[in-house]
Amino acid sequence: MVREASVSYGDTAVLRSVDLDVRAGGIVALLGPSGCGKTTMLRAIAGLEHLDAGQIEVGGTLVSGPSRHVAPERRNVGMVFQDWALFPHLSVARNVAYGLGRGADEARVAEVLDLVGLSGFGDRSPQNLSGGQQQRVALARALAPSPTALLLDEPFSNLDTALRVEIRTEVHRLLSSLDVTTIFVTHDQDEAFILGDEVAVMANGRIVQQGSPQALYARPASPWIAAFVGEANLVVGTAAGTVATTPVGAIQLSEACHGDCEVLLRPEELELAAEGPGVVGLVEYYGHDTTYEVELPDTTVVRVRMTSTPKFATGDRVQVRHIGGTTVAYALAG
């Protein structure tokens, strides 16, 4: 869908030759730290930014290309803005009807409002709604004209933490039932993994890896991605083929590696046993699990997560064992 898209502001390249494919009906999360270009990417698909190079197709139609720029209002792409951008002077119903043009179909408005669970809110003014309700109005407004694709810019970042999880589940349920091609931007790994069929990780204006959440978590393409999509211990070891020798023992690798390398060990793939060379430095109890920070004899510090109440205390001597399957290793340069 997106081919080698590039956008620059003056001398600053914001998007560098980005490729992104989205399956019809699929949901793709653009995940990346702030300033990585993910919002620019979204705005380019919307037509709000002009491409300097590359091309964008929506539903098989070229909308941005070398000599072509379809105006945003002609793309039939729906967008929900970070702050929802509801028209403050229009009622909820008229906000939703806005994209339907003149002679707006009242039945369609009612239908979409019902879809987002806001039947009967049509006459309200957006300012008098809660954050979650405003977000649903924005979603209803974007969906009303039956867009070819739906774009969501940081859809939950304006909600407070308590509400966020609840709304996220609601939107998840809604999007799963709708079968509309969706791209959303987030900096939150949980959001990306929960909502996205696929996740595209962006950094410095490039997509550095795209794949299913599971693949991304288990086989990140670089140490940076490994740490960005979850908690990661990157333990230095020596690899010979598909086996690496590390301070926590021999680890099976899914892909061969040779020489000095960093081995990815997720905290939940490690466990502790009493009596060993490691020393517990810190105990963090989260309720559903407990995370220990353990210092090994060679001064490597690893985080270990166990789904139990704390069994060890700071200063206890422990042994760290790997209980996961195969993992990945990254060759250390030099």
């Binding site: 945003p72 209002e73 509801l86 806005y98 974007a142």
Partner: peptide, 10 residues
């Protein structure tokens, strides 16, 4: 944003 929003709605 409001202007962009209106554009996205056609």
């Amino acid at each position: 944003r409001l202007d962009e929003s209106a554009r996205m709605l056609g």
